[in-house]
Nucleic acid binder design. Structure first.
Lengths: 237, 237
DNA sequence: GAGTGGTCTAGACCACATG
DNA sequence: ATGTGGTCTAGACCACTCT
C-alpha cells in the first residue's frame, strides 16, 4: 500500500495560519496584515503563492485589501442572516391542492405588474406532518409564457419535484423575500385546520428575472412551531 | 488633463464574457466550460490569467471545478435566503427598558447550557416608530465573563451603539437564528401595546463562540407589518 | 523615493480522470 | 497516452499611497 501524497499546499498553510491569528485575536478588526513581500520572506515562497492564500481569506470576507496600502481584517457582519428555506421538510409530505389558470386579484396583479386581463397559473399545495396535520400552505402565481423557460421548469419542478431539473439558463432569475407573522384568515385557517387568527409565519417570494421582469409570486403560510425558519449569521469555523 | 488608464483587466474580461454566457443560457446548468488551455488560446493570454477569471466565477458560486475534468456551471441555490436583520430600522428609535443581572429561568438556562446558580445579564429594549408606536421588543441574555471580551463589547455596543467597535477578536462567534410567528403573551403585549395573541414575528438568536460555548441568547419580537424581514435568494446581476 | 497591491507572463512538475 | 486542473516559481511593469 502506497502512502497517498496529500500534502497541504503552501497557500493553504498561509491561509490557515492567518485565519487562526484572526480567530485568536492576534489580529483584530481593522488590523493591518503583513505585506505580501513580508509573507514571501516568512514562508520563503513566491508572491503568487502568498496572494493565493490572501485571496482565499478575502473571498471568504475575513479580510479586505486596500490597494497600495495593505490587507486588513474585516468587520464581521452579523446582521445578514442566511436562512435555509427548506422546500420539503423532513417527515413531511406535500400534495397538490389545485393548479389552474386564474385572473388574479388586484394585489397579485400589482405585485406581478401585469394588466387586468392577464391570466396567470395559480398553484397551491399543502404540506402535512407525519401525523397528518397540515403544517404549511403554499400558493404560487406564475406568469406562464413559453418565452420564459425558467417558468416552465418552475411548473414542471413544482408538479414533479422528483424530476431532475431540465436544462435552463442558470441564474436567470432571483427572488425577493419577505418574512412576516400574520393571523390566519378564514380561507387559510380552513386549509391548515387551525383557528382564525392563529399566528402563522408568512414567507412571500417574488421571482424576478435579471432583466427586472417579475415572473412569479409565492406565499408560504406555516403553522408554528413546525415551520420555524433556521439560519446562521457570522463566520462559522 | 490626462486620460486615466482605467482599462479593464484581461481576467475581468474573461470573467464577464463567461458570466454573460451563463446568464444568456449559452451555458446551461451542468455544462462544461472551455478548458483552461482553450481559453488561453482564445484570449492569447497565460494560464494564470485565465485561472483568475475562472476563480472569480467559482468564488461567486456560478461555476465549480472538478479537478482533472473541467469547470461546470453550478446549479443555483434558491433555498438559501439572505435576510438583512436590521438592528436599527429607519425612522425608528431604540431606547433601553432595562439592564440588570438576573437568575434566568429554566428555558434560558437550558439554551445557554449553564447551571442553576449562574447569573446572567438581562438587557431589554424597545423600538418605537416615528409616531411613537412601539414596534419591537428585544430581550437579551448575556453570559458575562471578563474572560470573553466579545461579550464585553456586545454589552458596550448594545448600550452605546454609537460607539465604534472596540478592538476584539474578529469572527470569534457566530449566531444560530430561528424565526417564528407567535401570539403576543401578556407581558409582551403590555410592552408593545397590542392585544394578547396578536401575531408577532419572533427572531431568536443564540450567540455561540467558535469553541462551541454559548455566550448569549436574544429574543426579538416585532409587530407587523413594521418588523417584516426582507431578503433575497439566488444571484442578482 | 520606497513600499504596496494589481496585473501578467512563460515556463514547470504533479496527480489524476478519461478514453 | 493525452488532457485536465492544482500548485508553484521568478521574474516583470504599473499606478498608486505614504512619508
Amino acid at each position: 500500500m502506497k502512502k497517498k501524497n496529500n500534502r497541504e499546499p503552501i497557500y493553504a498553510l498561509i491561509y490557515t495560519n492567518l485565519r487562526n491569528q484572526i480567530f485568536d485575536g492576534q489580529l483584530s478588526v481593522g488590523d493591518l496584515l503583513p505585506s505580501e513581500n513580508q509573507l514571501c520572506s516568512n514562508y520563503k515562497v513566491s508572491r503568487e503563492t502568498v496572494r493565493r492564500g490572501l485571496k482565499a481569506l478575502e473571498s471568504e470576507g475575513l479580510i479586505y485589501s486596500r490597494p497600495k496600502v495593505g490587507y486588513f481584517v474585516s468587520l464581521p457582519n452579523y446582521s445578514d442572516v442566511t436562512v435555509s428555506f427548506t422546500v420539503n421538510p423532513a417527515n413531511c409530505r406535500t400534495h397538490y391542492k389545485d393548479i389552474h389558470a386564474v385572473m388574479p386579484d388586484a394585489e397579485v396583479r400589482n405585485i406581478l405588474n401585469i394588466p387586468e386581463d392577464r391570466i396567470v397559473i395559480e398553484l397551491s399545495q399543502v404540506t402535512d406532518s407525519v401525523e397528518g396535520t397540515p403544517v404549511a400552505y403554499d400558493i404560487k402565481y406564475i406568469l406562464y409564457e413559453q418565452a420564459y423557460p425558467s417558468v416552465e421548469s418552475e411548473i414542471r419542478f413544482a408538479v414533479f419535484p422528483e424530476l431532475t431539473l431540465p436544462k435552463m439558463a442558470a441564474f436567470s432569475y432571483y427572488t425577493d423575500v419577505q418574512i412576516r407573522a400574520v393571523g390566519a384568515s378564514e380561507a387559510v385557517a380552513k386549509v391548515l385546520e387551525c383557528r382564525i387568527g392563529e399566528p402563522l409565519l408568512l414567507v412571500e417570494r417574488i421571482y424576478i428575472q435579471q432583466n427586472g421582469k417579475r415572473i412569479g409570486y409565492a406565499l408560504h403560510y406555516s403553522r408554528q412551531p413546525y415551520g420555524a425558519l433556521k439560519g446562521t449569521s457570522g463566520y462559522r469555523l
